[in-house]
Design a protein around this nucleic acid. Structure first.
Lengths: 210, 210
DNA sequence: ATAGAGATTAACCAAATAGTCAAAAAAACT
DNA sequence: AGTTTTTTTGACTATTTGGTTAATCTCTAT
């Protein structure tokens, strides 16, 4: 009876506030780092008084954890599973496309993730050790099968996965640098398509699939 | 008479202390971010009292600037200039090799740089707008020449440069993730060679040069 | 030896910041 | 309408931290 409370009415204000806070916090954590992002600055960006922030999240670290969790959920959705049934060509095409889409649609998530890893993955060690390691192992094995079957060139599957990750995420993480170098203010809609096209062509060729 | 002081004896202690401080600061800035790295923590890591740090660098921001400058100098050396006379194959080989070497020899420099860019390049805007933009434009033009001459496949030169940057730097910036996923404690010597080999093969193939 | 420049360091301070609290306002429920 | 629960918010506090100061020490040159 009282179990569903969280989802019914009471949850609405809470959910709204939490979302506003998390969005503000994500930006502040990117721009200022964990320590540099003050609860006050998050409050200001969210347009709420500081004490209200601490009412929804017990403390600053909880905010950060929530932001990270949100980021991992997004990673999970956006990863674009590699499907064995597709065969190497289509599988790689799909994988690249969904990773590029993630980078252009949610650059902030990618940036938070990147910062966390660069700083030593203090909060993601567990995620990397379990979930991620298994994911990479599985997909690498799949690539290896295709290689053994002569369906693609002999490329080290692990390094191939790293290559796809790095190239696709680069457009999110290094957004600022790319835009500055290209003398542009923002990405345009066609940029995503153009990048997808470039990476797909290039990587398929690298895999001997084109 | 007193002009050469800095280089003679008195400069020795100063140079030594500054180097120790910069090394400590670099690590702290990576691990904790700018705001999270306290002068005290830098002092502890350098094995010096806090007041001594502030004696050599007027304030915390000066320390950070010095670390960044050091990083850019290293970038400058390690960039491995692309030589037009080499032709595309050798030029790309050389470029990849020197970037990979940088990533394995000086991962911290790469990490500092990456964080700065992710955080909006507050302190590197000028560098990117002038030096970097020109560098990329020049090299892109060179690639274009080779393409027009039919010496390599038609790949967008800008995206090619970004691809080489992202893939090579990934081994420095995401060191923690790669090691965790591969279930390893440290890079071995042969890793650098193996990665160089992989990337060279793959990218040359992508450029239609193999 | 000794004067003077540079180096070291403990003690101190003002500002910033995470987190608490209590009281009031708003919403939800009966 | 009244009661309870949730939300909002200003005021307060303990702690951390960047930076200063002044006193001492060390080194070098004459």
């Amino acid at each position: 009876m009282s179990e569903a409370k969280k989802e019914s009415k009471q949850g609405k204000i809470r959910a709204q506030s939490e979302a506003k806070i998390l969005a503000a916090a994500q930006e502040e954590f990117i721009l200022q780092g964990y320590r540099g992002a003050t609860v006050q600055s998050i409050a200001d960006r969210a347009g709420l008084p500081k004490a209200n922030i601490l009412y929804y999240f017990k403390n600053k670290e909880n905010i950060y954890h929530a932001v990270l969790e949100q980021t991992l959920d997004m990673w999970d959705e956006g990863i674009g599973d590699i499907d064995a049934a597709d065969g190497p060509k289509v599988a790689i095409e799909k994988f690249i496309a969904s990773k590029v889409r993630m980078s252009f649609k949610h650059p902030s998530a990618s940036k938070i993730y990147a910062m966390e890893i660069i700083q030593g993955a203090q909060h993601l060690k567990e995620f990397a050790r379990t979930y991620l390691r298994k994911w990479v192992r599985d997909k690498a094995a799949l690539f290896q099968t295709w290689i053994d079957n002569g369906e693609m060139a002999e490329v080290d599957p692990y390094n191939l996965i790293f290559l796809i990750w790095s190239t696709t995420q680069h457009y999110a993480d290094f957004e600022t640098q790319i835009l500055t170098v290209m003398n542009r203010a923002d990405y345009e809609q066609e940029d995503e398509e153009q990048v997808t096209q470039f990476l797909t062509d290039f990587i398929l060729r690298g895999c001997g699939l084109k």
